Amino acid sequence: MKPTASFLSVASVISLLPTAKALVGSSWTVTNVPSTGLTDITFPLTIVEADHISGYYFAQQFAFINSGDVGYTGLQPRPNQNGKPVLQGAPRRTATAPLGRTAVQVKRNGSSVWVGTAIGTVTGARVHIGSYTLPAGVGGIQSRQAGFVEWYPWNGGEPPNHCARLPYQKTLFGHPYTTHLGSVGTQSLAYEYGDCVGQVAFKKKRLLIGGVENNCGFKGQTGV
């Protein structure tokens, strides 16, 4: 995925989001970002309700200064292990114990190494979920991008009447934040896109505690 010059409208943000089987998008912005970019950003991201099966990917994208590429991080539900719910973090698929209310952080650790961490915002638990090294000359994180909700098993082929088979999910995307003084993050209201628009009982709302909530799909469905 390549970033465009403008992120000021829903239409321009949609062009950045996965064109595979993503369903929901939600753009974000951060004010007062230095010209060199941010050295860290944290995305509150809580899966309020979803079956304990593989398939959903809840993610946030971010772009870097002096780079045409887009990174992403997020959470994926997995089947229970030993009777307990499991989440996996991305970019590296490392199984983690449930963390309750969660956030995912991307932070520079040195000049070119960036580290992803899943955080339990109530428990304080921190789980390393991946890291990578960027080329020399690439700066920090830019001031805006977008998140998404994807049902990725359909990327390999769809069952008949696939939209009606989408499992139910409810997710909270909180306002992003950073340690850079004076910067304030905002998560915009979610919207539908893709080939199931108007067919998956999509709903959205702003939350008094900050951020936005979205839900879609149907309880009892498994996507197949």
Rank of each mutant, 00 (worst) to 15 (best):
A11D: 12
G110Y: 00
P160Q: 13
E49Y: 06
G74D: 01
V10I: 11
G223R: 05
N82C: 06
I65V: 15
V184K: 11
G100M: 05
E158M: 14
T31H: 10
A22R: 01
G55D: 09
P34V: 08
T222G: 03
L87H: 13
G124L: 01
V86I: 10
V149M: 05
A59D: 00
T179S: 13
G116M: 04
V200W: 00
I209Y: 12
K84G: 05
R92K: 10
L16K: 06
F64G: 02
G25V: 03
K219Q: 15
S111A: 15
N109R: 09
S35L: 08
G139E: 06
A125D: 11
A50F: 07
A59H: 00
V115E: 14
Q145N: 09
A50M: 07
V200D: 05
F218H: 08
F202P: 06
R126Q: 15
S188V: 04
H52A: 14
D40V: 00
C163T: 09
R92L: 12
I53T: 08
G68Q: 11
W151L: 05
I129T: 12
G116L: 02
F7R: 12
A63Q: 14
G147P: 02
T73Q: 08
L45C: 00
A22Q: 01
F64E: 02
L189N: 00
Q81S: 14
I141L: 06
A146K: 09
L23V: 10
L208V: 11
A125I: 05
E158P: 01
T73H: 04
Q145F: 04
F62K: 07
A90D: 03
L17F: 12
G110V: 08
I65N: 02
N66E: 06
M1T: 13
Y193A: 00
A118R: 01
Q60D: 15
N109F: 08
S183T: 01
S9G: 09
T31S: 14
L17S: 02
S112K: 11
V33W: 04
L75V: 00
G211T: 05
W28A: 00
G220E: 14
L75I: 03
P18F: 04
V224K: 14
A118L: 01
S27Q: 11
G210V: 09
L134W: 02
G110A: 03
L134P: 00
K84D: 08
L16E: 01
G55Y: 09
F62C: 08
L181D: 12
R101H: 12
A136T: 15
G130T: 00
A164P: 01
G89E: 02
F148C: 02
T29I: 05
G110M: 06
V13I: 14
Q60G: 13
I41D: 05
V104I: 09
Q105S: 14
